[in-house]
Nucleic acid binder design. Structure first.
Lengths: 147, 147
DNA sequence: TATCAATAGATACTGGGTCTCATTAAGCCC
DNA sequence: GGGCTTAATGAGACCCAGTATCTATTGATA
């Protein structure tokens, strides 16, 4: 059990402090746990990893982190809405349906395309939500190896 | 209270019958109620409109209709997942953040763009989920008139 | 129209999330 | 460092959407 939180977790806490929220030990624990996730997670996942914390505390911290934008929500293919560390700003996710991992989709410019198509429907675009499902590189490789 | 269900509702029922499901009076009621919706709705909305039906029955019918593809799920901007009449096949929605109405986004070919971008991430695309938010024509017009 | 599986309805239950309220502990000022 | 103020915590009640179970009903078919 490390006492010191890692760099990523520290960033989360700093963001909260910048907004005037106190840095408390439950929040450090939640930040650390989130920083350790390598795929989308649920509040229950965190609860399992932090049995000493109160239920409400976990939900509250999570909500706070989503509001401040350091954690974002991800829509899984089955409609389940989970959480994930967010790299600031607008981005999309590539979700592997095999191993559940998630990577950020960079350099995807659908904005222009959407703008154009929605305009043709008389629709004034203000935002969008996109999730992409498929198989990540390492799962594709495994598949090939198994055959 | 119309006895006869309208054409749209009849389509829903026919789809169920095609799949071997019985045409029962609760299902007729649900189909009719869904056909009357003009924006995404929740199970609770239906329940409010069909107080005579059992809770479970409404959920079951809804689930059935989603499985057969005549009703689809829509993700609202706040993360709320609701239901909506579905036009067959893959499509996206233009959701008006003002009046809550929804129209289908036709002629949007993001598939090719996504295919290309995900490939560059070593990702084998299998599906995607896209919702578009903004203001529909009539809400834009109202806005202009109000100024 | 009798039969029988599919369906319905009542209701208990589940799981994720929120609310309340008394207690604790950060952060700040001296 | 010690006390003060207020935000944050934790326990637990509560809420709400959705599911499971079980008995009664009903639609389709013979």
């Amino acid at each position: 059990m490390r006492k010191r939180v890692n760099a990523l977790a520290e960033q989360l806490l700093e963001t909260l402090e910048e907004r005037g929220y106190r840095s408390t030990s439950p929040r450090r624990a939640v930040a650390q746990a989130i920083a350790n996730q390598d795929k989308p997670f649920t509040a229950e996942d965190l609860r399992g990893q932090l049995p000493a914390l109160g239920r409400a505390t976990i939900f509250r911290s999570l909500k706070l982190l989503v509001e401040t934008g350091v954690v974002c929500r991800v829509l899984l293919e089955d409609g389940d809405l989970q959480y994930q560390l967010s790299h600031r700003g607008h981005h999309h996710h590539l979700l592997c349906v095999e191993c559940g991992s998630s990577q950020d989709l960079l350099g995807c410019d659908i904005e222009a395309l959407l703008q154009q198509t929605s305009a043709s429907h008389g629709f004034e675009l203000s935002g969008h939500w996109l999730e992409v499902y498929g198989r990540c590189r390492s799962c594709s490789v495994k598949e090939l190896a198994a055959v």
